[in-house]
Design a protein around this nucleic acid. Structure first.
Lengths: 121, 121
DNA sequence: CACGAAAATGGAAATGATTATCATTTCCAA
DNA sequence: TTGGAAATGATAATCATTTCCATTTTCGTG
């Protein structure tokens, strides 16, 4: 956990929703921070490894990052403003486990995200 | 639906699991087909638009395609051999709908995939 | 069959995100 | 202060995907 990591956490806190590496870099630059794009990618990768931020993908495949709370959870993402809500997925966990067992799969992981328009958009 | 579209459907049928555009292109080339990469992308895009194939993303963001049956469904994907199984997601549908309503989201869609190792791998 | 328009095709260049390189700078303990 | 490790960032390399554009194929009509 170095200076850049903390800087990224700070921007992510301020932006709230998901943002791409490029966007986060631009924001920092606008604020006068001379941080390099390389460092942004490095810091984000490091935070993902430490499970401090979540990484998921936009429709076009671009990676987007979000500061996340502890433990396993899923997201409700607004297509309009990018605002996201962390949600519990009790039903999902059971479903994934059951299906995996049904087909004899081991070491399973799963992804589940919901996209839509929030009440403001 | 043109010749290239049919050709892509044919390869996808033979490969079974998910494959990327680049992989599908290589397979066709190996078989002696001189189809261009551009055409592969175009055909896949067209099939996705017509909801004949599913598009999802590998961990690194690369797009992978799979011939899919009718209707809404999810996948159980083997990390080892790429073999996939289409599964029903009754529990997921309800979960997604309920959560969306709970937070006042409209026009919702959702993704849910399970990754693991199949019995052979 | 011949002709021309429209669709399809594919090679090459452009794009854009992400990663690798590498020289320079910052940190920090001894 | 100093030596080395870690961090940094500009630049170049990579790689999937798109865009461009010229050529070829398809196909309906005379």
């Amino acid at each position: 956990m170095n200076k850049s990591d903390l800087k990224m956490i700070s921007v992510l806190e301020r932006t709230g929703g998901f943002a791409s590496a490029q966007e986060l870099h631009q924001i920092l630059r606008r604020e006068g921070d001379g941080i390099g794009l390389t460092t942004v990618y490095r810091a984000l990768q490091s935070l993902v490894d430490d499970k401090i931020v979540d990484l998921l993908r936009r429709d076009d495949g671009e990676a987007i990052y979000r500061l996340c709370g502890d433990g396993h959870h899923h997201h409700l993402v607004c297509k309009g403003c990018g605002q996201t809500v962390e949600i519990e997925g009790g039903a999902i966990e059971n479903w994934a486990t059951a299906k995996a067992k049904e087909f004899g799969f081991r070491e399973v992981a799963h992804t589940a995200e919901i996209f839509g328009l929030c009440s403001k958009c």
